[in-house]
């Protein structure tokens, strides 16, 4: 069972890895992905993430359970933040553990692809000029095609 958190506070990657791995020496591969707030040309002041409490946790758990069915994972952790974040701050963390690297790499990528297209989060950027909702990218939707069996 994957461990899912939707929270406003930051996370510590080392602590999260240690908590997930514990003393499980069957683990031979640990993959982490961290998404951070990117400033484009020094104009971004803050980014606010809205989400759908109640659905967000369920949707992340659903995506993780599909990954766990598809690859032999020994651990899986997803943390996604909401609220107002500054450039450089952490947004999302995915950690996957497996015996060999292929499962951990593929599952982490799969999780991020489906999270981007399905987890109910919306970003709004506060720049020096205005406030604007971030538009979804067709490339994110297209990324799902490669996981079709």
């Amino acid at each position: 069972m994957a461990s899912i958190s939707v929270q406003s506070n930051d996370f510590d990657i080392s602590e999260e890895i240690a908590a997930l791995k514990k003393d499980n020496n069957d683990v031979g591969a640990i993959v982490t992905f961290t998404g951070t707030v990117r400033d484009i040309g020094g104009t971004l002041r803050t980014m606010t993430l809205e989400h759908y409490p109640g659905m967000t946790e369920k949707e992340l758990a659903r995506i993780a359970s599909v990954a766990e069915e598809r690859w032999p994972l020994l651990g899986c952790r997803v943390i996604h933040r909401y609220g107002t974040l500054k450039p450089g701050e952490n947004i999302v963390l995915v950690i996957t553990l497996s015996a060999h690297r292929e499962a951990a790499f593929k599952a982490a990528e799969f999780l991020m692809d489906f999270l981007k297209s399905n987890a109910p989060f919306w970003k709004k950027e506060q720049t020096n000029e205005d406030n604007r909702w971030v538009a979804s990218k067709q490339s994110d939707a297209s990324a799902l095609d490669r996981w079709k069996k």
């Binding site: 993430l49 996604h80 999270l115 109910p120 989060f121 970003k123 971030v134």
Partner: peptide, 10 residues
């Protein structure tokens, strides 16, 4: 029923 634009998390 929740109504929303395409999601942009991650």
């Amino acid at each position: 029923i929740a109504i929303f634009p395409p999601v942009t998390g991650g």
